[in-house]
Simulated assay, not measured.
Amino acid sequence: MSTPPLGRGRPTSAELEALPLAPPAATGLAEVVRRRYLLGMLVRNTIKSRYQGTVLGWVWSYLQPAIRFCMFYFLFQVMIGRGEGTIENFAIHLFAGMVIVHFFTETFNGGTQSLVQNRSLITKLPVPREMFPVARMLVAAWHTVPMLIILLIPCLFLGWRPDAVGMAAALLGFTLTAALGLALGLLFSVGNVFMRDIGKVAQTLTQFVTFSVPMMYPFTLVQERFGEPLASYYLLNPMAEAVLLIQRGFWTGTTSDPEATAAVHLPDHLFTRGLVMTGISLALLVLAQRVFSRLEARVPERL
Rank of each mutant, 00 (worst) to 15 (best):
T175N: 10
T254A: 07
Q289M: 14
Q207S: 15
R248N: 14
A202C: 12
A178C: 09
P218G: 11
H269C: 03
P267G: 02
L287F: 15
G274L: 01
L270Q: 03
E296P: 08
L266S: 08
L187C: 00
V201M: 14
R290I: 13
T220I: 11
L151A: 09
F174D: 02
F208Y: 12
G253I: 05
Y217W: 12
V165N: 08
L172F: 07
R196I: 10
D257Q: 10
L187G: 06
M215P: 07
P267N: 09
P258E: 09
E228C: 00
L282E: 10
L275N: 05
F219N: 05
A202Y: 05
P154T: 09
L176S: 00
L176K: 03
T204H: 01
V291E: 05
P154M: 02
L176W: 01
G173A: 03
E241P: 00
L180E: 03
N192F: 03
R290Q: 14
P218H: 05
V193C: 07
Y233E: 10
A179W: 01
M239D: 06
G279Y: 01
L187Q: 07
I149C: 06
S281M: 04
S232R: 15
A260L: 08
S212M: 15
L156D: 10
R273F: 09
V193N: 03
T272G: 14
G227A: 02
T220Y: 06
F157V: 15
C155H: 09
R161Q: 13
P154H: 08
E241A: 08
D257G: 00
T254F: 04
V193H: 00
